[in-house]
Design a protein around this nucleic acid. Structure first.
Length: 307
DNA sequence: ACCATAGGAGACGTTACTTCA
DNA sequence: GGTGAAGTAACGTCTCCTATG
């Protein structure tokens, strides 16, 4: 078992594409607070300033260490603490879109051609096996220990992205390569987003169900009102459909009184279908959300901005 | 100031491996 | 022991942003 479900912290965020979270982490991120989450949202509790203070973002130019050789990695166990020099060099090639990965081509192609590039060397080194074994087994995967996962989770709760120095420090602390830390954070962000998407879908589904039910109820009420209009005697004796009444001219809600000769109008439904010649349409106002349902305003904002 | 280019980083989709029922 | 599903580490690619000339 790697990470408990609840550790995923469901009160996460759904970021829409186009803008990267690293540029403006809160500008396009939807926050939903879910009571099911045992811990506050890792995003909502992010205090980037403190983390950035602790690990100021380094100048990229100083991080541009080029990959010249990684033969030193051969035979190193993945869970052995890398030396500072190792980590320093790793930091320079942390991006999967680095020069090496960009020219490395697809995995299938690399494997077909024998895969003797730096990636394979790194993969072999991550298992502490020989090149011969690596040629046979394309990609073995390590499992992070519980402690390593816990520390990574802890770090992720503080900040879901890492700058090179943070990555270096964390890798050193965990005895992993910076690239492994980076990959873990990438995958963790993906899992977070997936979870949040599932939560959002569930929420929207409930909204749809509520709206459908509300629509059904209103249709039924309209039918009843129409039926009553066709039978004036019943119409005169009917009790108001709701306890609230509204003046059709000024649209003010009045205190209910004894049934009168005038029809009582519901606040929940526009009576105009009954008044066939009515001119000015008036928007129907009702709340499709159950009283217990918190309305995620950010979700609406996001939806509106999309439309 | 504007533009082209290179490189870094994150998102996203996928693959491959591990674990477990 | 075999197997399928789930979880996840690792990878490839794309896009965006920034620095540089």
């Amino acid at each position: 078992m790697m990470v408990e479900k609840e550790d995923l912290g469901l009160s996460l965020s759904l970021s829409f594409p186009e803008k990267r979270a690293v540029s403006n982490p809160s500008s396009n991120v939807l926050h939903l607070n879910l009571s099911s989450s045992p811990s506050p949202s890792p995003f909502s509790i992010i205090n980037r300033s403190s983390w950035t203070d602790a690990f100021p973002s380094s100048d990229r130019s100083s991080e541009t260490c080029r990959v010249e050789t990684r033969s030193f990695l051969k035979g190193i166990d993945v869970n052995c603490l890398p030396t500072a020099g190792d980590a320093e060099e790793e930091a320079g090639v942390s991006s999967p879109n680095s020069t090496i990965s960009s020219v490395s081509g697809k995995r299938s192609e690399r494997e077909a051609t024998g895969g003797s590039d730096d990636h394979d060397i790194e993969r072999a080194s991550s298992r502490g096996i020989s090149d011969e074994e690596d040629a046979e087994n394309s990609r073995k995967k390590l499992r992070l220990s519980k402690d390593q996962s816990a520390i990574l989770e802890e770090s992720f709760k503080e900040h879901n992205t890492l700058n090179p120095k943070q990555k270096m420090a964390l890798a050193k602390r965990l005895g992993l390569r910076p690239r492994q830390v980076e990959v873990w954070f990438q995958n963790r962000r993906a899992r977070t987003k997936l979870k949040q998407t599932e939560v959002d879908c569930e929420f929207l589904k409930r909204c749809c169900e509520n709206l459908t039910e509300e629509n059904r109820r209103l249709q039924k009420e309209v039918q009843e009102l129409r039926a009553l209009k066709l039978s004036p005697q019943l119409y005169m004796q009917m009790t108001p459909p709701t306890t609230l009444t509204m003046c059709p001219s000024c649209e003010r809600v009045a205190v209910p009184s004894a049934p009168s000769s005038a029809p009582q109008l519901s606040t929940a439904v526009d009576p105009r279908p009954l008044q066939m010649g009515s001119a000015q349409p008036r928007p129907i106002t009702f709340n499709p959300w159950p009283a217990s349902t918190p309305i995620p305003h950010r979700l609406f904002d996001a939806l509106q901005s999309r439309s």
